[in-house]
Simulated scan of single mutants.
Amino acid sequence: MLIRLGAACGCVLLVLPLVLSISEELQELVDMLHNTCVGETGTSEEAIENAKKGDFADDEKFKCYLMCIMVQMACIDEDGIVDVEATIAVIPEEFQDLAAPIIRKCDTQKGSTPCESAWLTHKCYYNENPDGETMKICVLFVLCVGFPASMCSLEEWRAMGAPIHKTCVAESGVDEVLIEKANSEKVLEDDEKLKCYILCLMKQSGWMVDDKTIDVETVVMVLPDEMKEKATPVVRACGTKVGANPCETAWLTHKCYAENGPNAYVLI
């Protein structure tokens, strides 16, 4: 069965406070895709984790896992030829400007077998890095698809959040110093641009309903695993801190997160 996750589910597969939020229904599809491809190929979870760090094992099972993921997403045919435009289409909209040139440039990296072609193409996605580490989110995206959102690490969570950070800085005009202060000192200044930056993050991530209410369980769902135990009770206790406007509501809620769970608070 083909799972055209991007087209069927609004081009949102992950994580990303990172960033991206996904519904419970979509998470079930994601888990099924991962389990199907691990079951079919027998690859190890270790090989998948290592690939997120750039270590693509020269292992037939892992190569065929990548092939399986792309087949299930209708991004490659049985001969190992990548459908470039279909691959771009399943990338969340926030990442497409960053990912599309890489995907088009890599096209299909042909190997001796269809599985090797999928593997070589993914290596190309990872290694084509003209704009720094954040370009590697193309591969993190595909490899994190196979896991619950929380199983992507904080580092990966940050990397995938980079495009949203850039968008929201531009939209709000916030001073990066205020974001750095929020992370280093857990102090969120009473600054309108910072408030609206936080609102932008939460809207881009799908964590606010109608600019008024925090979707608490969606926030909890996308927390990185190492933060989940400490952060979940804080997120639930804070709920929505209502302010005079949507920007202030987002800011007050984040202030609650930072004040009540400083060791688990990160502002991307």
Rank of each mutant, 00 (worst) to 15 (best):
V209F: 11
E156G: 08
L5T: 09
D97T: 12
S172V: 15
N129R: 08
G132N: 07
E156M: 13
M151Q: 01
G10C: 13
N245C: 15
N183L: 11
I81H: 09
R104C: 05
K230P: 09
F62A: 02
I137P: 07
A264M: 13
V177F: 03
I103W: 00
I198M: 09
E176D: 08
K61C: 07
M135Q: 12
E60V: 15
E156I: 15
Q27P: 02
K61P: 07
T113I: 14
K136N: 07
N129C: 13
E28D: 12
C144E: 04
L143C: 00
V71E: 00
P262N: 06
L14G: 00
E40T: 15
A100H: 06
E133D: 13
N183M: 11
V187C: 04
G173F: 00
G42A: 09
A100S: 02
L199I: 12
E60G: 08
S205C: 15
S23V: 10
K166Y: 11
A170W: 04
E176L: 13
G243W: 13
E155C: 01
D59Y: 00
L13Y: 08
Q109K: 13
P163G: 10
D211H: 07
C115M: 06
A7G: 01
L66S: 09
K52W: 04
C196N: 03
T87D: 03
K110H: 11
S153F: 05
I81C: 02
T41N: 04
A74V: 12
V209R: 10
L178T: 12
P163N: 00
V219R: 05
A57N: 01
A86I: 05
T121G: 00
P92I: 04
Q109R: 03
E128V: 13
A57V: 14
G39S: 15
D77S: 03
R158C: 14
N263G: 15
F62Y: 10
F141C: 13
K136F: 07
E156N: 01
P246H: 04
E185A: 14
L66V: 03
E78W: 10
K228I: 14
D58S: 01
G261M: 09
P130N: 05
L194V: 14
Q72G: 09
Q109A: 07
E259W: 06
T253C: 05
V220N: 04
M32L: 12
V38I: 15
L66N: 07
V38N: 03
E185C: 01
G239Q: 04
M67G: 08
I22V: 09
L66E: 08
A264K: 03
E46C: 02
I214T: 09
C152E: 10
H122L: 11
L199C: 02
I3A: 00
G80A: 06
E155R: 15
C247W: 02
D107E: 05
M151I: 12
A99Y: 00
M227Q: 09
Y265D: 11
D55Y: 12
V219K: 00
F147H: 10
T249R: 09
F56K: 00
N183I: 05
L18N: 03
D83S: 10
L33C: 11
F95S: 11
M1E: 00
V38R: 05
L26S: 12
Y265R: 01
G80Y: 07
F147C: 05
L20T: 15
C256H: 08
